[in-house]
């Protein structure tokens, strides 16, 4: 099997985020591998391990896992983390013209990287913690004309039959869906527990190849991506006015009653 895992470098969830000129100010905050994408890397590794003669991922398994990311040069840090978990190699699309790209452009670029590479499965997280759109995997399936098996809480792969089945877990319940390769899969955070990179993994990752591609390499016009091409434009971004400090009471045995009074006053009970 040839598996691609799409990962994004994002500002640390804990960092205070600010906007600069209508875009997220990424320069000023620590950047990490989108934590929801760690589950995607982990699931790819488990799929390969289950179907590997040696029980391990890597070249000897007869399968490959390629990490794919679009982002600035420094996204290589997040890519290294995925490689140190055990993925084999990586492709980073980096180009000044990509700044400010929306999900439509991101999915366009990723699909150009993925198509013609013969991937059987493209595995994503369900959401990037900065954009929070949860749309890139569905858009990829549409653009690549692949099956869409998203929000998976369980993934079963049959490499011989070239089939994949998932349990899709959403607010509507659980749906079992199946498809033939190739498919785009996104995994929810309940699916597994991502491993920590081992020392051996970290050392090995230093030798793994990261191919950097520009828009020209992908035959994409700079005018088709980035802020200029976005089909929606941010007009303004304002910090929410500071919330008036709330009431805070120490329970002296009557706080429950005070809470009822408060709710009554606010006509909430």
């Amino acid at each position: 099997m040839k598996i691609a895992v799409c990962v994004k470098q994002v500002p640390d969830s804990w960092a205070e985020k600010k906007m600069a000129n209508g875009l997220l100010d990424r320069a000023g905050v620590d950047a990490v591998l989108n934590d929801l994408d760690e589950y995607a890397v982990e699931e790819a590794l488990r799929i390969v391990e289950k179907n590997s003669a040696t029980g391990e991922a890597g070249e000897a398994s007869g399968h490959s896992i390629t990490v794919i990311s679009m982002g600035p040069e420094r996204a290589t840090e997040a890519i290294r983390k995925a490689l140190s978990m055990g993925a084999d190699n990586a492709i980073l699309v980096s180009d000044a013209a990509l700044a400010g790209s929306d999900a439509l452009a991101t999915s366009k670029v990723l699909s150009e990287v993925i198509k013609n590479e013969g991937f059987d499965l493209v595995i994503c997280g369900t959401e990037s913690t900065d954009a929070r759109m949860s749309v890139v995997p569905a858009m990829l399936a549409q653009r690549l004309q692949f099956a869409q098996l998203t929000f998976a809480g369980k993934v079963l792969v049959d490499p011989a039959a070239k089939k994949v089945e998932i349990d899709r877990v959403t607010e509507f319940g659980v749906e079992t869906m199946s498809a033939n390769f190739p498919a785009v899969v996104s995994v929810i955070e309940k699916i597994n527990e991502p491993r920590y990179p081992s020392f051996k993994g970290i050392m090995a990752a230093k030798k793994k190849s990261i191919t950097t591609k520009s828009l020209a390499d992908l035959n994409i016009q700079a005018s088709a991506v980035g802020s200029a091409a976005a089909w929606s434009a941010v007009k303004d971004a304002l910090p929410r006015p500071a919330k008036a400090a709330g009431l805070k009471v120490q329970d002296d045995g009557s706080a429950g009653d005070k809470l009822v009074e408060y709710l009554k006053e606010k006509r909430l009970a």
């Binding site: 919330k243 709330g246 009431l247 805070k248 009471v249 120490q250 329970d251 045995g253 009557s254 706080a255 429950g256 009653d257 005070k258 809470l259 009822v260 408060y262």
Partner: peptide, 16 residues
């Protein structure tokens, strides 16, 4: 919180 209670939920919640 607009209204915060520092206390044990097992006392505060049943009373409310």
């Amino acid at each position: 919180a607009d209204f915060g209670v520092i206390g044990d939920l097992f006392n505060v919640v049943p009373q409310a």
